[in-house]
Design a protein around this nucleic acid. Structure first.
Lengths: 139, 139
DNA sequence: CACAAAAAGCAACAATGTTGCAAAATAGAT
DNA sequence: ATCTATTTTGCAACATTGTTGCTTTTTGTG
């Protein structure tokens, strides 16, 4: 785990700092996506809010994490799979929000479908967010 | 227009008030979706912020408008087509965000595709948000 | 160990969202 | 048209979330 974290940071030429390591650790040990607020809570009192904002921004720019749109004004972030690099995501999967546990998951195996837009629209990419009840909660 | 507005409110057994009429008017005269902030700006100084929040909430509950998820912490709202009623949306279309003008549009004719989820997930509904450049901006 | 560069922390602030309550507007009955 | 119960608004105070500039601390490198 510690090595994974170091690797990810090294690979993206980011210096190893306590907050980056902690935040990455949270992502690695959580299967759901995390909002800014989640991270603040889970990280305890240890980091300044500003640091968390800046770290998430850095990670997003580097392609270490990606954002997931929501309808509740609380953008979620989740780890990108391996081949994401700065500005280029090869990570077109569907996201799932559980209405019961409120968690957001990446369904890495479910690829976003092609969608035919009306004439005149130029498409750059598609986000699909499915809502329902997740595997855990259905048990 | 004025009649449309009255109709919509009556149909949903909402009393006719200045703020509701104004906000509905904004939706009717705008082809893009509106965020809370947009509405405050476009409505001028006339309404209290709280009133706008509460009106949007009421309209959403009644199914007059629906929310559109975003990755920028600024949920957009757009008018529902006719057959939406309290809690039941028959309005499964794709949304489009223009990266240039930043506007969000409902593509009423593009229906959300079916998506096959992994075993164990119960699906309740799907949101599709496409990003790119809109017709106007491409000209 | 020393140094330059990068990141974190702090403070102050701006914007956004929420709640309770008093005043005003509305719908419906007389 | 006027009165009244109910709903909605506006206000004030507050909580939360996000931003910016600057100083201090930490990191990577020689």
């Amino acid at each position: 785990m510690k090595e994974d974290i170091t690797n990810i940071l090294k690979r993206n030429s980011l210096s190893l700092t306590a907050s980056r390591e902690k935040i990455l650790q949270l992502f690695l040990s959580n299967d759901g996506a995390l909002s800014h607020g989640d991270i603040e809570k889970k990280a305890g009192e240890r980091f300044d809010r500003v640091t968390v904002y800046r770290t998430l921004q850095t990670f997003t720019e580097k392609g270490i994490i990606h954002t997931i749109p929501t309808a509740d004004n609380a953008v979620r972030y989740a780890l990108c799979k391996d081949n994401c690099s700065e500005g280029h995501h090869h990570d077109h999967h569907v996201h799932f929000i559980c209405q019961q546990c409120k968690q957001t998951f990446c369904l890495d195996d479910v690829v976003t479908p092609d969608i035919k837009l009306p004439r005149g629209y130029a498409l750059s990419h598609i986000e699909v967010v499915a809502e329902g009840v997740c595997r855990q909660c259905k048990k």
